[in-house]
Measured scan of single mutants.
Amino acid sequence: MATADDFKLIRDIHSTGGRRQVFGSREQKPFEDLVDLGWLKRSSVDSRATHYQITERGTSAAL
C-alpha cells in the first residue's frame, strides 16, 4: 500500500524528468518500494549506482 512519502517521492521524480540515479543500498529502499508498487522500474544497475525510470503507472500516481 502506498504511503504519503511514496506519493511525495514519485511527484519529485516526475517533476525532475522521470529518472533518478541512486548510490548506496540504504538510499535505494524508498525507490525499491516504488518498484514494488509498479511506479518505477530499474533501468540499469552498475557497481556504484542504480538507475530508476518512472513508469506510466508512476506518472498517473504523480498527477
Rank of each mutant, 00 (worst) to 15 (best):
M1E: 12
M1Y: 13
M1R: 13
M1K: 14
M1T: 13
M1S: 12
M1I: 13
T3K: 08
T3C: 06
A4N: 09
A4F: 10
A4Q: 11
A4C: 12
A4L: 12
D5V: 07
D5T: 08
D5Y: 09
D5A: 14
D6T: 05
D6E: 07
F7D: 02
K8F: 09
K8Q: 11
K8E: 11
K8V: 10
K8W: 12
L9Y: 03
I10S: 00
I10Q: 00
R11D: 03
R11E: 05
D12V: 07
I13A: 00
I13Q: 01
I13F: 03
I13E: 01
H14C: 08
H14G: 03
H14M: 12
H14N: 06
S15Y: 10
S15F: 11
S15Q: 13
T16S: 12
T16M: 09
T16N: 11
T16A: 11
T16Y: 06
G17Q: 06
G17H: 05
G17W: 04
G18M: 02
G18H: 02
G18F: 02
G18K: 02
G18T: 02
G18L: 02
G18D: 03
R19F: 14
R19W: 14
R20F: 07
R20L: 08
R20C: 09
Q21R: 12
V22S: 04
V22T: 04
F23N: 09
F23L: 11
F23S: 14
F23T: 13
F23Y: 11
F23W: 10
G24F: 09
G24K: 09
G24A: 09
G24C: 08
G24P: 05
S25G: 10
R26Y: 12
R26V: 14
E27P: 09
E27W: 10
Q28M: 09
Q28N: 08
Q28F: 06
Q28H: 07
Q28G: 05
Q28A: 09
Q28I: 09
Q28C: 08
Q28K: 11
K29T: 06
P30T: 05
P30G: 05
P30I: 07
P30C: 06
F31H: 04
F31K: 01
F31W: 04
F31Q: 01
E32Y: 05
E32K: 10
D33Y: 12
D33P: 05
D33G: 10
D33Q: 15
D33M: 14
L34Q: 01
L34R: 00
L34D: 00
V35F: 03
V35M: 06
D36G: 12
D36Q: 15
D36T: 14
L37N: 02
L37I: 06
L37S: 02
L37Y: 06
G38D: 04
G38H: 04
G38N: 04
W39P: 00
W39M: 02
L40D: 01
L40C: 03
S43G: 10
S43N: 10
S43K: 10
S43R: 08
S43M: 15
S43E: 15
S44L: 13
S44I: 13
S44V: 13
S44K: 14
V45N: 08
V45W: 12
V45L: 08
V45E: 09
V45M: 09
V45Y: 10
D46T: 13
D46C: 08
D46P: 06
D46N: 11
D46R: 03
D46E: 09
S47R: 07
S47W: 09
S47T: 11
S47I: 11
R48K: 14
R48A: 14
R48H: 14
A49H: 10
T50G: 05
T50P: 06
H51Y: 14
H51W: 15
Y52N: 01
Y52A: 01
Y52M: 01
Y52G: 01
Y52Q: 00
Q53E: 15
Q53T: 12
Q53P: 01
Q53H: 10
Q53D: 08
Q53W: 09
I54W: 01
I54P: 01
I54A: 02
T55Y: 00
T55R: 01
T55M: 02
T55E: 02
E56F: 08
E56S: 09
E56R: 09
E56V: 08
R57S: 13
R57N: 09
G58T: 00
G58L: 00
G58S: 00
T59M: 12
S60R: 14
S60D: 12
S60I: 15
A61T: 04
A61Y: 04
A61N: 04
A61D: 02
A62T: 03
A62D: 02
A62G: 03
L63T: 09
L63P: 01
